[in-house]
Design a protein around this nucleic acid. Structure first.
Lengths: 210, 210
DNA sequence: TAATAATTTTACCATTCGGTTAAATCATCT
DNA sequence: AGATGATTTAACCGAATGGTAAAATTATTA
């Protein structure tokens, strides 16, 4: 709402607005919309609850801001990878590596986004439009490889969803998977995820190559 | 708490307890723990809110009951399929078909379970133990096929997680995927899921066969 | 039928939560 | 300094929510 002039004696490096966003993000992602408390967000930001409302009139408004940011973090920047002009196999490899890597830095993102997505599915379509991502782009590449007989015939929708499934699910299902296969050992699970960057790509390529 | 004698003039086929469980299940799965309201559950069960507390002292207690049931619905009965003594490929085919089919009947289950799992991960380990499922069982089968050179070398953990990922994710990410690839068309998406029963199995088998 | 136990309902309570008001504080500009 | 506008704070509000007490009703048993 108001620009802060960064004059010399700046005690706090963060503006109040930044502190709010950071706090709200962590609380919403941790607790979900219904579980999050405005008071708790204010506490974590180190400000008064009324100040919170001063910047973001309502919980909904604050949430929307956070959600858009989280959603964009969650959606991989696939267009950049595609634009590189690489082969399909290299695109798949780059995608898996980048996406899993990104999620490892924000492991709670998938659960948050997917849960809140189900809560208000209407908003999704609108947000998806804004990303500008078109499945068509991938379709073109895949169809070409199919017609050149480099890969088996496969519906591009299935392929894309398969790729995303294999990357995302281990984060959504982390508590189950980690508890089940790794006796709850977090570090071992991290190594496992790290391993998946290549293993998932290999798996996919194996499944579609001729 | 008390058995109801099914004497002849039984107006309502369901006992109050059954009505509560059914209502609570649908509400919790729809709204999550924080989003669910006891009043709303009572309404949907067609009873008084105080009656709800008469049967289940607290929201927590009621939720636990529901969650255990939902969790068991969510966890596929894989031991039955394995016990059939079929080949690995047939096990994979049967698993995908059964699991996707089961989830199609309860499409909201995955989001609910996975979200509440992240909310209280401690409970998971305990519940997993109770299922009696041991990843070892699958490991034995997979190792055997590997040593017989019927499939490529693959870490059984990756393989199992891949299988589950491909089956579950389209339900967790439904709003995104459906909105993105199918313009929100529910029926078309159902057909797509139906198709996946076979396509996913084919994909996996292709990826691991020699 | 009378007594006893189980169930349901009404009315209510304490707390929590999102949000507001208005006063106080701080920064900026003239 | 004094005026003006931005920001922060304390105190508060009304609605909603989980939960309870006790009366009313409905079986069940003796």
């Amino acid at each position: 709402m108001v620009e802060i002039k960064n004059s010399l004696p700046m005690q706090d490096t963060q503006t109040t607005e930044q502190k709010i966003i950071e706090a709200a993000k962590s609380v919403f992602i941790e607790k979900g919309f219904d579980g999050a408390r405005m008071q708790y967000i204010a506490d974590r930001a180190g400000i008064n609850k009324a100040s919170l409302h001063y910047y973001y009139r309502s919980k909904e408004k604050l949430f929307d801001t956070i959600f858009i940011e989280a959603f964009n973090d969650f959606m991989p920047k696939v267009s950049l990878i595609i634009a590189s002009g690489s082969s399909l196999f290299d695109i798949i490899r780059a995608f898996c590596a980048h996406y899993i890597d990104g999620l490892m830095k924000h492991p709670h993102l998938p659960v948050f986004v997917l849960h809140e997505l189900s809560r208000r599915p209407e908003k999704v379509i609108e947000m998806l439009r804004k990303t500008g991502i078109k499945p068509q782009m991938m379709n073109t590449i895949i169809e070409k490889e199919v017609s050149e007989s480099k890969i088996i015939e496969i519906n591009y929708k299935h392929l894309i969803i398969n790729i995303i499934s294999l990357c995302v699910f281990p984060f959504v299902g982390r508590p189950v998977v980690q508890g089940f296969f790794f006796g709850g050992d977090t570090e071992e699970y991290s190594r496992f995820l790290e391993e998946r960057k290549n293993k998932v790509a290999d798996f996919i390529i194996n499944a579609i190559k001729k």
